[in-house]
Design a protein around this nucleic acid. Structure first.
Length: 488
RNA sequence: GCCCCCAUCGUCUAGAGGCCUAGGACAACACCCUUUCACGGUGUAGACAGCGAUUCGAAUUCGCUUGGGGGUACCA
């Protein structure tokens, strides 16, 4: 196997799933580590479930994650086209080859007949495998069936292929992440490679595409293990070189079921919409199964690629825990340069009138409110008090803070003193410190209680950004107006 | 039902026979810092699924059981 060529082959029946993104990442890392090529192929053989919107979403998400492909539907490449539906004229040739060599045969069974077989198997508590009743149809029988208007599907002859290339019915292969895997091919059943409508099935199309695109390593989810045996046999029957396979554990939701919509976001674009950063997403997902040799978990894709060894990926399933993703996202948000962050936050501030603030004030606001953000979207609820003349007072802040005698006294004092203060950061910082000290020394009020009164009056809540910064952004007039209004 | 895969703290994992009285990260809890929330810092608690076997010695090897996941389509 000379050149490393790997691929990600999503089917556009939905937006790019986070699990697919992880598979794409591991393929990408493997390619980068081995100076290979990373290829994108769209598997849209099932026209009913495919849509252009999903295809666009897959492209955009992969790009946003930084997983750029060397060959694909848009950029082309030497082995295109890279969209399965545009390759339909390629497959029949190989079906015919299999038919000619006896590794495949026509099957005229109707869906009803097949259903019947399955039912009988279930009732007899037997594992269902296709009966092969069409395997040895004579030409006359076929012609008769055809004249009745029946269109045949083409089935692959498992036993024949297995016998031709292997000693026993056990098929074994060496998985690059899981090690030796095996299966008794008698249990597989002759599967359809071409539907009666002429379209290739998944298991057939992948083999042809992987072979023609010279894919050297197939790295995918372990839900494909059972397909691998079928695929190996097709590779062999067609005389293609069999690629190496690697199967990754699945990503499960916290309740150990399949990660699905009801658990929250599942598509990369959903996460982004919710305020997750693609850098955090890709970093987090890399840690599901892979771990850095130096123990440092925060890493860029390039750094991970240096350290990546496919054989060291954990082969067990892993649970997608949002907590750690959030922590990591917060970590990444802290590293974004302020100017960039200002732009990134804007989509989450549409309910406010940003023109109320000068650019300088907006910068300041972002500076003092960014610290506790774990999601970009957290900004929405963190800043309402920077806008409008009046502020909405939180009921609890009203009751537990503003309604107390201490708070009322503090506020009266604040208003009378602050009206003479110079309203700039340095001075406010100093004056506020003096103000706290005064209340502590003369009346014995804790600094934080003093600040709570002011904070509640001006922001309507008892927690939030740095008070000096808030006062500065709001300005003297608005600040004192709100303070006055809170006094009974 | 049948087949396949997997199994270390709640979660992600380190660990490839003695370095393990099992290490780290997130979450939890406590304390410190502090004008609040948070950040940060310091600690605490928390796991080798069970049973057998191999071995002087097992989280690490083997078998069984249990548990979880996947597959069993003219879906991909």
């Amino acid at each position: 196997m000379s050149e490393v060529r790997v691929r990600i082959a999503p089917s556009p029946s939905g937006n790019l799933h986070i699990g697919t993104a992880r598979t794409a990442l591991f393929n990408y890392l493997f390619a980068k580590k081995n100076n290979g090529k990373f290829i994108l192929r769209i598997e849209d053989t099932d026209a009913d479930r495919t849509s252009q919107e999903y295809i666009d979403n897959i492209f955009d998400s992969l790009k946003a994650l930084g997983l750029n492909w060397d060959e694909g539907p848009d950029v082309g490449g030497p082995y295109g086209p890279y969209t399965q539906s545009e390759r339909f004229d390629i497959y029949p040739k190989y079906v015919q080859k299999l038919l000619d060599s006896g590794f495949a045969y026509e099957c005229f069974c109707t869906p009803e007949e097949l259903e019947q077989e399955k039912q009988e198997a279930t009732e007899a508590k037997r594992a269902y495998v296709y009966s092969k009743k069409c395997e040895n149809l004579t030409e006359e029988q076929k012609a008769k069936l055809r004249s009745e208007g029946r269109k045949p599907a083409i089935r692959f002859n498992i036993a024949k292929a297995q016998k031709a290339f292997h000693d026993s019915s056990i098929l074994e292969f060496d998985d690059i992440v899981k090690g030796k895997l095996h299966m008794d091919t008698n249990l597989l059943g002759d599967f359809v490679i071409q539907k009666s409508n002429g379209a290739p099935t998944y298991n057939f199309a992948v083999v042809i595409d992987d072979a023609l695109m010279k894919i050297s390593h197939v790295i995918r989810g372990e839900d494909h293990i059972s397909n691998t045996y079928k695929q190996i046999l097709i590779f062999e029957a067609l005389g293609f070189e069999v690629p190496k396979f690697g199967h990754l554990g699945m990503i499960l939701a916290p309740d150990r079921s399949k990660l699905s919509k009801r658990h929250g976001a599942t598509a990369v674009s959903d996460f982004v919409k919710q305020g997750y950063l693609t850098d955090a997403l890709i970093n987090f997902v890399a840690l599901l199964g892979w771990s850095p040799s130096d123990g440092e978990e925060i890493k860029t894709v390039d750094q991970i690629a240096q350290d990546f060894r496919i054989g060291e990926i954990s082969s067990s399933n892993s649970i997608f825990e949002y907590d750690k993703l959030k922590w990591m996202n917060g970590h990444y948000i802290k590293q974004i340069p302020i100017e960039q962050l200002k732009q990134m936050l804007k989509p989450y501030l549409t309910k406010y009138d940003l023109t109320e603030l000068t650019d300088e004030q907006y910068t300041k606001m972002v500076e003092i409110t960014r610290e506790p953000l774990t999601l970009l979207s957290d900004i929405t609820d963190a800043v309402p008090y920077f806008f409008g003349k009046d502020v909405q007072i939180d009921p609890e802040a009203q009751e537990k803070t503003l309604d107390t005698d201490v708070a009322q006294d503090v506020l009266k004092d604040f208003v009378s003193k602050a009206k003479d203060w110079d309203w700039n950061e340095e001075n406010l910082h100093e004056k506020l410190a003096d103000f706290r000290a005064f209340w502590k020394e003369s009346v014995g009020i804790k600094p934080k209680v003093t600040m709570w009164a002011i904070r509640a009056a001006i922001t309507g809540r008892t927690c939030g950004a740095d008070m000096v910064g808030i006062l500065e952004i709001l300005g003297k007039e608005k600040s004192l107006y709100r303070a006055n209004k809170a006094i009974k």
